[in-house]
Structures are given as structure tokens and as C-alpha cells.
Simulated assay, not measured.
Amino acid sequence: MKIVELLENDPGLKAGERYAGILGASPSKGARSPLLWNAAFQDFGRPERMVPMDVLPEKLGQVLETLAGDTDFIGGAVTMPYKESIAAWLGSHRLSPQALKIGAVNCLYRNDAGELCGTNTDGEAALADIKASIPDLRGVDTLLIGPGGAGKAVAAFLADAGASLTIVSRSPETAKDFCSGIGAKSATNADIGALIPASSLIVNCTPVGFANGVASESPIAAADLDQVRPGSLVFDIIYDPLKTPLLTMAEKNGLEIKNGLTMNLLQAVLGFSKATRIADLDRISASMKKAAG
């Protein structure tokens, strides 16, 4: 079966066309990666292009099998909600050390043997953006909400940077082993109010506030956000909208805010380099920044 027959959208692929893809529930509805990757493909004179791939959960395995066997597919990106399930499908032998530790992938590429493999650039990208505001994270009290695929990546890199990390999840028992593995504390949503006053860095890795999700809500109640200490940074990995309800409230409270736009650009630069084996990160970044406007 051809890949176009398995998708919920029409990627417009032609027979024999080399391509990259972004896999998710509905990346055709606003994912920025095709814009960024295609600008870089054009700048480097490459024939490939990236297309969005809307995949139903029950078809994910078949889609991956088809892509793995399609030599025209060079790799690409993974978005919600498949970062963890695709990592599990690939298996430990086809994951980078970072992705194996995190248990999630956001980037697909071919190894020297032509096998489809996965790595994770989310955490590295988020850490770089956060460190632009907080250069030294050692001992910084950090509250991260949502240990999903992206959340685990961000958490792992924050822990490696020395942050004093507490991870809030709806099901802490599920995240317990991961938290223990990176030296983080585990908490529930009910604990947020008590944890907020001591936190200098707050990171939202849930989809709450996302334009195509629960855009009108915030993962932190206004009353709790009022308790955040002055000078703290609130970082939301969502970039659509640029200001989620969480960031809007935080800004009104005089807190420093950052959305996921820079993180998204940096992870795309790293992912493009991995899939194409082009090492010139500065040129890739310049191409993508120009396209992003």
C-alpha cells in the first residue's frame, strides 16, 4: 500500500519524489515544520520537500512500516501525540542515546545501513532558549507540567543542566520511574498551588492553551499564578497562539514569558541536519528564520 492511501490528508506526493514528513494527529492544520524545512531544502538546492502527515492511531504502525520500507522517505519530524509510541515502535536499537533515555522521539532519520531511526531534539532546543534567560540552571527551583513526549525531553535536559526539578502529571505513578531516572521529584496537579511560590522557572509542556486544543484554558489557575515570585520565567512550549492564556496572565503579573517559537525553530534546525546530514547549522538556521519571518 502507498503512504498516501494511509493518511487522512493528501500530501500531494508524486511517484518517485524524495520527501520528508511530519507525523502527528493533524500536522496539516498549522504545523510549522514544513515551512521551515522546505525553505532549507530550497536554500541548499535539495530535491526533497517536507509534507504533513495526518495519521490515525490505528494506522500508525502500518504508516511506519510503509515509511521504513520507502527509500524515497529520508526522515522528518514527529509531533503530538506519537512521540512516545513511535519511540516504542522503533525499539532501543534504533534510538539515539538521548531518545532512549527520554523514551520519545521528535526526529526520524536513516542510519548508515538505511534503517529508519529516531532521536530527540526537543530538549536541546528548549534548554538553549531557557538558558538565554537563565544561563546557570544549577539549583534553580523548576516546575514542569506535563511529562509527555516533549515534556520528558525538556525535563531530561533541565535535569542534566542541574535544575532542581519537580514534574507535575495527572498520573504520577506512570511518570514515577522517569522522574526517578533523571533525579526529579514527582507531583500531581493538586500540588501546583503549594509548589508555585518556590518556583523560579515554570514550564508548561501540556497542550492546554494550544489553538487546536483547549485554547481558552491554562494549566495553572490565575490564583496560583499570582503566587509566583517576581522575576520568575514562565516558559510555554506552545507557539500557536504566541500568547497562551498562561503567558497572558503571567505577563500581566510582570513575569518574564517565553513561548515555544524559538524552541520550534531550533529543534527543526537540528532535525533537518540529522535527516539530511548537512552540518552547517548556521546556514540552516538562517534559511529557516527567513522563512519564519
Rank of each mutant, 00 (worst) to 15 (best):
D129K: 12
I130E: 02
I130S: 01
K131L: 11
K131A: 13
A132P: 08
R138N: 13
G139W: 12
G139M: 12
D141H: 14
T142P: 10
L144P: 01
L144T: 01
P147T: 03
A150Y: 08
G151W: 02
K152P: 05
A153F: 08
V154N: 02
A155G: 04
A156W: 09
A156G: 12
A156R: 05
A156S: 15
A159Q: 02
D160V: 04
A161W: 01
G162D: 08
S164M: 03
I167Y: 02
S169Q: 07
S169T: 09
S169K: 05
R170S: 13
R170P: 05
S171H: 14
E173L: 11
T174P: 04
K176C: 08
K176R: 14
D177I: 10
D177F: 10
F178V: 00
S180W: 07
S180C: 09
A184P: 01
A184L: 09
S186N: 13
S186L: 15
N189D: 12
N189V: 10
D191N: 02
D191C: 00
L195F: 11
L195H: 13
I196Q: 08
A198M: 15
S200Y: 08
S200I: 03
S200Q: 14
L201R: 02
L201F: 06
V203K: 00
V203Q: 01
N204K: 02
N204S: 05
N204A: 01
C205N: 00
P207C: 13
P207Y: 09
V208W: 07
G209P: 02
A211M: 06
G213P: 13
G213N: 14
G213L: 09
V214K: 15
A215S: 14
A215V: 12
A215L: 13
S216C: 10
E217P: 09
